[in-house]
Amino acid sequence: MLEVKNVTKRFFNLVALNDVSLQIPRGEVVGILGPNGAGKSTLFKIISGILNPDGGFVRPIGPAWPAIAYKPDRLHFPSQMRVREYLILTSRVCDVPQRKAKTAVDNALDLVNLTYAAEKRVATLSKGMRQRLGLAQTLIGNAPLLLLDEPSNGLDPEGQIEIQGVIKALHAAGKTVLLSSHQLQEVTDICTQLIILNNGTIRYRSSMEAALATRPHVTIEVDRDLFAITSALQHLHSDITVDEKKVFLHDDAIALRRRILTLLLGAGYDVVHVEQQRTTLAEIYSKAINE
């Protein structure tokens, strides 16, 4: 849907984005992870056209620019307006026909569970309600690409689950979503693509499926201390670590697992427990950030 190519952005001496290239494929939910100051919001602002890149460009993959809806990370609304009035204004800016505007607003409010606050002034909304309103305004006008900068920030767990449900429903309806979050579980649950950004550069990119499928961990526990054969085990492969009664295999190859078990059994150990664990997003994130 969109291609970001070699984008660089500087704020005086600070390089916020450095030669960032990525694609946002149609129909995918692309999750962007990264610590504060990694350049996530700057990337969102460049894609939405609020900021101009100092180098590189953003271009559509296809003949025309897709309509974009954007929820900024820091939410500001015209404080004197009521929730419904603000969404009606958004619908008019998005060229929603007047006769359909009310339905569009009602649907958006219903989806984010904010119907009860439709007549409240924006200034009186709680942080969680403002997050919902921020998401609701992106639903108006049927934009095919949604940029959601920290959509569930400030929401209680129930609210986070609701918002995740909305994003999943949008994905199912064929929308393309680019979202940033600090909540790894949220990204794991709803994103189909993963990008990890740190210090303005992309440190990791993969489909979520591939990211979580690769390199499962295996832990083999034996009946007594492994001190006697530690060096023999570590000679088998560099990805093997030993800790008292446990052998950790970070790269699960069946052949290697067999060799470890053969060595352990041959040395007279009893294997009491074998556990296979998938790589978690936290591990991927931690590794990408600390590299």
Partner: peptide, 12 residues
């Protein structure tokens, strides 16, 4: 010139 306008401007 206030941040409340970001979401509206992006739609134009």
């Amino acid at each position: 010139n206030q941040a409340a306008s970001y979401a509206l401007i992006v739609r134009l």
